[in-house]
Design a protein around this nucleic acid. Sequence first.
RNA 1: GGCGCUGUGGCCGAGUGGCUAGGCAGAGGUCUGCAAAACCUUCUACAGCGGUUCGAAUCCGCUCAGCGCCUCCA
Length: 499
Amino acid sequence: MSIKDKFPITLYNTLSKQKEQFEPINEKHVGMYVCGPTVYSDVHLGNVRTFMSFDVIYRYLMYLGYKVRYVRNITDVGHLENDADEGEDKIAKKARLEQLEPMEIVQHYTNGFHDVLKQFNLLPPSIEPSATGHIMEQIEMVQALLEKGLAYEVNGSVYFDVSKYDKSYNYGKLSGRKIEELMESGRMLDSQDEKRNKIDFAIWKKASPAHIMRWNSPWGEGFPGWHLECTVMSTKYLGETFDIHGGGMDLVFPHHECEIAQSVGTTGKEPVKYWLHSNMLTVNGQKMSKSLGNSFLPHELFAGTHKLLDRGYGPMVVRFFMLQSHYSSTLDFSNDALTAAEKGYKRLMEGYKIANGLEFVEGTVDTELETNVKATIDSLFENMSQDFNTAKALAVLFEMTTTMNNFKAGNIKTGLLSKETFDTFIKHYTGFITEVLGLKEEKGEDNQLVDGVMDLLIKLRNDAKAAKNYTVTDKIRDDLKTLGVSLKDGKEGTEYSID
RNA sequence: GGCGCUGUGGCCGAGUGGCUAGGCAGAGGUCUGCAAAACCUUCUACAGCGGUUCGAAUCCGCUCAGCGCCUCCA
């Protein structure tokens, strides 16, 4: 029995509004699409949280043995700032402000996006397609929708006819909206005269003379609608129906709702089996967002330069912090929470180091311990398979950390476990920390010199200690502490750690 | 206004009706020259009111508080 069959995944599907057992369309392969960023400004930590959530899902699926094709797009077409015709496109606006080519803006922020995700140790997706690279396919889909009679052209723009679509299908099923309510609800913006109904959305937009990003189409020069790119690219790389579609909660309506409409309208098929949405990162209970002005940029966090921070925190501490909550819950960002997370993270990583250094010594197996350890390993998988509950998985890892500490302290002999169980224990303990949760040691490259110097200092200090010269021993320890190096006297000698 | 979500101990944060979440902080102890780390033990809960149930943090209703989406948003 393979691991994935032993620990079947259940996940909360936004479409059905309940937990379902995960059964991929093809037994061993999983197709997953996640809506990526619009690259017209720096990603903030709220954005990072979403991509991190799906990074862990991606990692766990692979850990269970699935072959995953993970597609995450880059939105590099400048979409309008609002639904009105006169809205300026965001990338063009930025280009004008910074006096750059729109594609320079796109490249700059795409690079920045990649750098940030790399710092947080996110794996790159299997395919990262861009909207501008798929203009032809988008035009084709617009044509297909026109042919089906689900779209109409007005003055060089093409709109999706939501009411007509809703007669045959069900618009609003993902977000729980009713078309009548959407029709009468409050906002009526200007310049909607081209649309037959206010809820219709543009799938192709005519470019005004000032609009820089533009392409030729059967309807004149223009650019594709925002929702279209995701439908086109997910279909192209994952097929007309695929397993998982993810994104932030705030994309459920209208973005994902429109994606479904476009897919169903074009192919007649349900595009996605499981819709997953990660919740918002909040600051003082409010959604972190650029427009509210409460967003944290990664470099402000690392350096501690943000006005709400007392000091800086490393990317792995933040990763740990985010994993302590469930992806579908809001998570509040604060100094205190980060400080607590930092200590917890260090404790876990100490356990990780111990696990890597443990040696198995044959002994008499304690059946009770053996059983407990096996159950703990299972619960690690069970919790993670429960809608990717990283918080619970971490709780189990901390239980295991206690055992690691006991191994190290000699309170528990490794030989109380069978060799097989011991190896499995170490394998999954370290595997979950690094491969599934994507945590790693914050620092640690080229420590050779530091190691050598520290060994020397520790030796000198131990000599002084043997001579009971505590003035010297304490001076070494205290001065190192001010430099950010802690000494720990254990039974088997002194170790150091860099704070 | 419409639709939806949340409210857990000093803080953060899991919780699939009955069994210790976990992390941080606090208290006591073991170890140590002292400390740190580690280990052992331990104290603080389920917004309020009512209901269903043998039993509710968990289900239902109401009240209060906060939030999200309905416009670009992860």
